[in-house]
Amino acid sequence: MSTTKTRRLDLRLTDKQDTLIRRAAEQEGRSVSEFTLSTVTMEAQRRLADQRVFILSEEDHARFEEILQTPLKDDPKLRKLLNRPSPFGTHIDLDDPRTPER
């Protein structure tokens, strides 16, 4: 993947938005471009990681299937983690009025 920046992204914003972004970038000691690009990239990655449907090329799909079919290696730390009691308990009563709504 090339790291040379060849693309531009132009945005229109209000004075208030401009001030807010500039102050946040200054607080982090970064340029407005660095701050904006890293923030937008992180949000894009977060949103894409949450998607439920993935479109893969045939090559990527074959690799994905290969990974799924590969037997798991024994990992004592993972086994210990999965065998410990849940910090959330073992039962959620959806009829309990104390259960937060989703």
Rank of each mutant, 00 (worst) to 15 (best):
A24R: 10
R12M: 11
P100W: 01
A25G: 05
R63H: 12
E28D: 09
I92A: 03
F88W: 10
L9Q: 09
S31I: 08
Q45M: 08
T3V: 13
S2D: 10
E34A: 13
M1Q: 09
R46Y: 10
R102T: 09
L56P: 00
D75P: 02
K73F: 02
A44S: 13
G89H: 00
S31R: 04
E59L: 02
T19Q: 14
R7S: 15
V53A: 12
T99D: 05
R7M: 14
M42W: 04
L68Q: 06
K73P: 00
L94W: 11
G89A: 01
Q69D: 11
T19K: 14
F88L: 02
G29R: 04
L11M: 04
R84K: 10
R22T: 11
H91G: 01
P97C: 03
D50F: 14
I67G: 01
P71H: 02
S33N: 12
S57K: 00
S33A: 13
D10W: 08
D50Q: 15
A25F: 02
Q45H: 11
P100F: 04
D95M: 06
P97N: 06
S86D: 09
I21S: 04
P71G: 03
D95K: 08
K77S: 08
L37R: 14
F35V: 01
A49R: 15
A44T: 13
T36W: 07
V40M: 12
L37Y: 10
T39Q: 07
D74I: 10
